[in-house]
Design a protein around this nucleic acid. Structure first.
Length: 519
RNA sequence: GGCGACGUAGCUCAGCGGUAGAGCAGGGGAAUCAUAAUCCCUUGGUCGGGGGUUCAAAUCCCUCCGUCGCUACCA
């Protein structure tokens, strides 16, 4: 008994010290679209997101807030849960690295790496700025005439040594390179794979894996003075969530290795070098893919704390609408590239593509049906070549979109869908059902049915991107709730003439822009 | 410095050996079912500069200019 194929997708766990912004919402939304797509395509999906709650910064922030770290993280972790709700994200689990199960998993993978002989005791040394509580590289420092080392922040540094456990990362370079080579889609997009490969090829140094300078973290087994390097802890969340260290657990056997770790481009090394090396050491299978997406600029400017221009997801939803925002995220930029978020681009996408192309297509068709077909699905007569062509385009869409989604080419998937929407608008004009109404009503019914059936295909396929709006459209076509998966995209599930339809309602309102006004 | 990517119409980009493409923006027209939405036509580029290979180069090679990324332990 194999059942449906499993698909396990993860967001990074977000560092609770941050306030959720457009970047977090973007990553999570992309995963959500992927997860929804796979579910509709018949996969048994496990979709994980969560928060990373350990580390020195959190410890400090908690102290500054007058809370103990656990109480502090309990509070701020909620910000990210709230974001997933706001973005209508369908995650199956929300993991927190302060959960007991995660302590257990982290210590277990540590023990496994120790057992493999890949962890040893050494000392971590470097130029340390007490004021910043951070180490700096030699090349980052400026030396004063008196020989003092000054960090970029202006803090004075001193040479510090602390005992530390190390991971024998240097021993894994060849195996990592072999893995990249044998699995060309392990790191996407391809440009990122080249960077990582170049980095690994240049030689790997062993990795300091523990700290003794703060407490807020997972203790090293049998040596509680040491707290694990936060990335050991953080990365392990992906297997904690499926039951590790119980590798016989149902979820572990079903979902691990993960199909896709989605990450921002800033954390690609942790996911494509360290994490695979940890897993190799522990004797666990590697995830199938790590996809590194790009960053958003805001109105052409980098997001930064000093500029205070971070965009909050809630504001986007409030201003533009939830599905509109989700659509924009995945349509505006080739997935993997950096992109710019601007009000102008947002309005252009919403009005041009959602309101005018898609929304208006649905509206013009459904209102003709409502007025001229007794508020029921029209009954088609014999299909003309133009009708067959229209339906052929709609039915060919799934295969096209699936191929694009398989490589996270969200923008291409949407592009393909919009080509059919364009075909449909063209078909309306060519067939001119408003003329057929007077000259050939049965033919009008066939045309309107063809259009409704085309829209059914489109709406089923836009569900992962815009769940609510797509549902409204499918509601207006009276498509039963259990006939909305991709298995229904066949002639056997085509709209049936005579099915009563509700009154049509607009789905994507136009945004009225200042200065545009009504003419 | 090293490695790499990119530079194509006003904007965003596709094309990656066979005499330049899309979307949006701009201009003209058609239609009137529809959220004044739609459809058709159209203006616009010596494909960063120079050199080379080839019957033929945005497309391959060299070089120059410009932009950007990576070049490890804050997460």
């Amino acid at each position: 008994m194999s059942g449906p194929k499993a698909y396990y997708i993860t967001t990074p766990i977000y560092y609770v010290n941050d306030v959720p912004h457009i970047g977090h919402a973007y990553t999570t939304t992309a995963c959500d679209v992927m997860a929804r797509f796979k579910r509709l395509d018949g996969f048994d999906v496990m979709f994980l997101t969560g928060t990373d709650e350990h580390g020195q910064k959190v410890e400090k922030s908690a102290a500054a807030a007058g809370l103990d770290p656990q109480a502090f993280t309990d509070r701020v972790s909620e910000n990210f849960r709230e974001m997933t709700r706001q973005m209508n994200v369908s995650n199956d689990q929300f993991i927190r690295t302060t959960e007991p199960r995660h302590l257990k998993a982290s210590q277990a993978i540590w023990d496994a790496m120790v057992a493999a002989g890949d962890i040893y005791v050494g000392k971590y040394e470097g130029w340390y700025a007490v004021r910043d509580e951070a180490y700096y590289g030699e090349d980052e420092l400026t030396v004063t005439p008196t020989g003092k080392r000054i960090a970029p922040s202006g803090a004075e540094c001193e040479w510090v040594e602390e005992p530390s456990y190390f991971f024998r990362l240097s021993a894994f370079a060849d195996r990592l390179l072999a893995h990249y080579d044998g699995n060309p889609d392990f790191i996407l997009p391809a440009g990122k794979r080249s960077e990582v490969t170049a980095f690994v090829r240049s030689g790997l140094r062993d990795l300091s894996m523990s700290r003794t300078t703060f407490d807020w973290g997972i203790k090293v087994p049998d040596d509680p003075k040491h707290v694990m390097y936060v990335w050991v802890d953080a990365l392990t969340n992906y297997i904690t969530a499926v039951g590790y260290p119980d590798t016989d657990a149902e979820a572990y056997r079903r979902y691990w290795p993960a199909d896709l770790h989605m990450v921002g481009k800033d954390i690609i090394r942790f996911h494509t070098v360290y994490w695979p090396a940890f897993l190799m050491s522990a004797g666990l299978p590697l995830p199938k893919r790590v996809f590194a997406h790009g960053w958003w600029t805001i109105e052409g400017q980098k997001m930064s704390k000093s500029l205070g221009n971070a965009v909050k997801p809630a504001e986007l939803i409030e201003t533009y609408g939830l599905d509109q925002t989700r659509y924009f995220f995945l349509r505006e930029v080739p997935f993997g590239n950096d992109g710019d978020f601007s009000r102008k681009a947002m309005v252009q996408r919403i009005n041009g593509e959602l309101a005018n192309d898609y929304g208006n297509l649905v509206q013009r068709v459904l209102s003709m049906v409502a007025k001229n077909c007794a508020a029921a699905v029209p009954a088609p007569g014999p299909l003309a070549p133009a009708d067959e062509a229209m339906l052929g385009a709609a039915r060919a869409l799934l295969a096209r979109v699936r191929a694009d989604m398989d490589v996270q080419a969200f923008h291409k998937a949407l592009d393909a869908i919009w080509l059919v929407i364009g075909d449909a608008n063209r078909y309306v004009d060519e067939q001119a059902p408003w003329t057929l109404r007077k000259t050939d009503p049965p033919r009008m019914a066939t045309v309107l049915w063809t259009l409704a059936e085309t829209i059914r295909h489109v709406a089923v396929l836009t569900q992962p991107f815009m769940p609510d709006a797509s549902a409204k459209i499918l509601d207006q076509l009276a498509v039963p709730a259990d006939r909305r998966t991709f298995t229904a995209l066949t002639p056997a599930d085509a709209l049936v003439g005579g099915t009563p339809l509700p009154a049509p309602q607009g789905v994507f309102p136009r945004l009225v822009v200042e200065g545009e006004g009504a003419h």
